[in-house]
């Protein structure tokens, strides 16, 4: 791998789902034309249910009028996002041997398992069931999109999520799938930001970045600005 691979990490705070999607699309467009480098967006969403492209709406068994539903172009079934959940959207370009969809999913899982390990939580994969599990309980959901070998969407790791919101859906289309969180697995002290830090480090390590650079969220636009307008030279 190139020795100078840098991962930019942006902590975005709480971002509305639609806005985050817009941001991802802008970043993917910029990334595919090589105007920006690899970026990991870390954020929380307000309450929202999302359905993968192939998902069945019947998996939302008890729709709540106050909670919006989005259908999105990622794989996977239905899931819930909300406060207390760390959401990670890597916008990275897969290169060479990394151009392998399932390999990418497995590496995402590995990064999350490593983050949880640092909190003393033993998590694992389950064969044929993408995501990260603590015993039979699911702690992180994964659903990605790949566009010109650039990734979008990503993972949702329950930190202190109110798991009751999962009761209204059949998470990931698996009936009887029991959800859990970092808080429930014995670390109620961990905050979303703590976990974001761990996840950024674990992700960079798993994907072989030589360095991470933290980007203030409001600098993202300037990255995109230089990507879109090319007017940087005059600034």
């Amino acid at each position: 791998m190139d020795p100078a691979r840098i991962l930019r990490v942006a902590w975005m705070g709480v971002v509305d789902y639609a806005a985050a999607l817009e941001l991802q699309n802008a970043l993917v467009a910029a990334r595919t034309r090589d105007a920006v480098g690899d970026i990991l967006l870390l954020l929380e969403h307000p309450h929202v249910y999302t359905l993968g492209r192939g998902a069945d709406e019947r998996f939302i068994t008890r729709p709540t009028p106050e909670i919006p539903i989005h259908r999105v172009s990622r794989g996977g079934q239905v899931t819930y996002h909300g406060p207390g959940q760390l959401v990670g959207y890597p916008i990275i370009r897969l290169e060479g041997v990394e151009r392998d969809v399932l390999r990418y999913l497995r590496k995402l899982e590995a990064a999350i398992i490593a983050s949880l390990g640092r909190l003393g939580i033993e998590a694992a994969r389950r064969a044929g069931m993408t995501g990260v599990w603590v015993g039979p309980r699911k702690i992180a959901s994964i659903g990605v999109g790949i566009r010109r070998w650039t990734t979008l969407h990503g993972f949702a790791l329950n930190v202190a999520t109110d798991l009751a919101y999962f009761d209204a859906i059949v998470p990931c289309g698996i009936a009887g799938c029991q959800m859990t969180s970092i808080a429930r697995e014995g670390r109620p002290d961990a905050t979303v930001i703590d976990v974001a830090k761990l996840a950024a480090g674990a992700f960079a390590e798993e994907f072989g970045y030589s360095a991470t650079e933290i980007v203030a969220a409001d600098r993202l636009w300037s990255l995109l600005e230089s990507a879109g307008g090319g007017c940087e030279a005059r600034k």
């Binding site: 975005m12 705070g13 806005a19 830090k197 409001d218 995109l224 600005e225 879109g228 307008g229």
Partner: peptide, 29 residues
């Protein structure tokens, strides 16, 4: 071209100011 660039920049600035509303700083920055 510069006028066009400036126009695009302003549009993007506006859009992204809106996208990144309330936020907290990332630790270590």
């Amino acid at each position: 071209k510069r006028d066009v660039d400036n126009f695009i920049r302003e549009q993007q600035l506006f859009k992204f100011r809106r996208l990144i509303a309330p936020r907290e700083g990332m630790p270590g920055t």
